[in-house]
């Protein structure tokens, strides 16, 4: 069965899986995130449409105010 890795954790891959599906599955509700799939950035506006391929390495980074 194909899988993907999200922040180092392996989860099952599903047909039609988008970034939004992954965020919901992982219960990531943090507002400000940067997402990279196989080191390539996926913009927030594409989270509902971007198809996550099987075997993908997904990185979800929390952005926190302060500078």
């Amino acid at each position: 069965m194909p899988t993907i890795t999200v922040n180092g954790q392996e989860i099952p891959w599903e047909e039609g899986m988008t970034i939004r599906t992954v965020l919901n599955k992982m219960n990531y509700s943090f507002r400000m995130l940067v997402i990279k799939v196989n080191d390539k950035l996926v913009k927030k506006e594409d989270w509902d449409s971007f198809q996550v391929p099987p075997g993908a390495d997904v990185k979800v980074i929390h952005l926190i105010s302060g500078g």
């Binding site: 400000m32 995130l33 390539k40 950035l41 926190i64 302060g66 500078g67």
Partner: peptide, 28 residues
């Protein structure tokens, strides 16, 4: 300073220049 600004910069910069290094900060 603001997380919203950080996200805007990181997303747009990485799309414009995916091969250039970008060094950000989060949690200080």
């Amino acid at each position: 300073d603001e997380a919203e600004e950080k996200q805007m910069l990181i997303e747009n910069w990485q799309q414009l220049y995916p091969d250039k290094y970008l060094i950000g900060a989060s949690g200080i």
